[in-house]
Design a protein around this nucleic acid. Sequence first.
DNA 1: CTTTTATTTGAGAGCGCTCTCAATTAGAAA
DNA 2: TTTCTAATTGAGAGCGCTCTCAAATAAAAG
Lengths: 354, 354
Amino acid sequence: MKKLTLEEVGKLAGVSRATVSRVVNGYPHIRPEIRERVQRVIDETGYRPNLLARSLASDRSNIIGLVIPSGAQAVFTDPYFPCLTQGIARGVNTNNLTLALFMVHSEQEEERTILSILGTGLVDGLIVTSDNKGDVFIPELLKHDMPFVQIGRSLYSNQVYRVDTDNVTGSYLATKHLLSLGYQRIATIATNRNCSGDDRFTGYANAFAEYGRTIDRRLVAYGDYGLESGYHAMRQLIPQRPDAVFVTSDTMALGALRALQEAQLRVPDDIAIVGYDDLPPAVQANPQLTTIRQPIEQTGFLAVATLVKILSGEPPESHEIVLPVELVVRASCGAVRMNAVETAGQTVSYPVNP
Amino acid sequence: MKKLTLEEVGKLAGVSRATVSRVVNGYPHIRPEIRERVQRVIDETGYRPNLLARSLASDRSNIIGLVIPSGAQAVFTDPYFPCLTQGIARGVNTNNLTLALFMVHSEQEEERTILSILGTGLVDGLIVTSDNKGDVFIPELLKHDMPFVQIGRSLYSNQVYRVDTDNVTGSYLATKHLLSLGYQRIATIATNRNCSGDDRFTGYANAFAEYGRTIDRRLVAYGDYGLESGYHAMRQLIPQRPDAVFVTSDTMALGALRALQEAQLRVPDDIAIVGYDDLPPAVQANPQLTTIRQPIEQTGFLAVATLVKILSGEPPESHEIVLPVELVVRASCGAVRMNAVETAGQTVSYPVNP
DNA sequence: CTTTTATTTGAGAGCGCTCTCAATTAGAAA
DNA sequence: TTTCTAATTGAGAGCGCTCTCAAATAAAAG
């Protein structure tokens, strides 16, 4: 199978390179008879256009990049990124693009990656998952005006197109749920290095405000979305005797659960717990976690759609898309006083009205 | 920041395009004085070569593709792919390549993807994760002689470069461990749609053979690596009253655990269980899983290294790299009769000698 | 100082495609 | 039929880089 070019296909069909190009790209204004003849040659020879040559000539690679910065080490433990990537991949396939994956492991790799992306013409645009406050990626992209869509939120949100889930409302719902259940000492395990963490704390605070309660700072501990950090944060909270805890990620909730188990505290009898994400671990946990479900895959899909719009020159009116989330009630919050096993598969969910 | 070309940099430095190209690519035979002058211009202007143009001219894109076929739906629940991808990403970064991710969701997308990859010059080579017996990808690649490395095993293993972990030995170790612990009715939850599943069953059989035992077919159930399938397989096995079960993936083991719990069977007192993979779920489980640890990330890294060798024209002597695995003993097998909590973080492991 | 040889540079031909523009052909109008 | 317009096709100039080959320069040898 030697290399076929437009030129050769043209020769075979008795037309010029330009005409073949038109057929390949579905242009109008071609005599049906010619089009057919060319198409036949293409089918018979199995000709495929060289994407690199096409990209070079058209100044459009149809490759978009997905950047996962070094901060996101949770890539291993957390199904979040796989889910997101899945959605992005679906978007990419739908739009006939190619996805380039840039996973950065260290700060210096970060620098190298930025350079290799910017100004090399390789990607038309980017999807960036940076949720880290101290991130250098975004400003760099802005400076080189590389088209991109951010997943999550950043300090530069106003100048940026972004897709996010409604973290504030999510946490608000989770916390309100605990409040409405009558819990008195509702702790939280938050994070403070990223924007989604801030938002989730805001939701927690909002619910407290609505109930005329004030936040007891001793009932606030911090983690980094990792399992271990949830464990340690929970150990830190236990002496404060909370009767409920809102953990801002399921993975951390799993860690917290272990800490509680160690402390011989029963969930939800001694202490209720609500997570965030509704990823598989939430169901695998014992008891199953009441948690906030967010449409992660859809987030990825919409990010691609948004980027495509931007690249096509007709950027979306709004700079942000914020997707609704919902509360999924399972056993861990004590609303349903049953054995986890019995409630397996059964899920009560309160849809959100935005 | 307008577009800089070799030509312009050359003009600025008072040399020809060719000379600049030589500097950029680190060729010898350049007067140090000139090299310096050119380099200075490059630094000052921030020139970056256009990768597409380079690829077109050199017939080498330095992009390699990672193909995750539609069969691998476990992408969500299983940290396997994230881990593997991490390793591949590291390899890619190390070798100054770019990674293109092809995630296929349906059979028809599969077809489309193959076409868009083959003969378009976009990727220099591929890493394929197909472990599915009925896969069409491999033969297609072979036909178009696209360089690739397979992760896992396939029906075409002899004609293919591949990197794999030692599934046979892994299962052998797991099963032998249970046998040596004196269990009498050792069941297994296997899989039968993929090659790694076959290998794992072989290891199970090998251990039985070594102990002069024969396999009771009623103690063999099948799953598909998914959590639910483990649950159902276990339910199917329970009536056969096994006193131990070797589950060929941690994820399925989690499902099995739930089935056992439902049946009021205590682990490991009533029934011992050993998993496979040693991914985070193994530690999160209660009791923590005795399991087989395999170097997944390294698998990905080595796959890239192998592919790079192939592309450089000096293919590795051996067609396969099989990485060693090890048994990690935790609470679920009954070898360590302790509360899972007490053994948390403590891990006894028997290194494998291949 | 000339001749030979090795080093260093530049010119130029592609890589395979897109896209503009002009030429050709067909169709409509006169 | 002739004229004008619109539809259809081809020629050719790039896109920015690599790479061969020959020219130019410098160094070594005679």
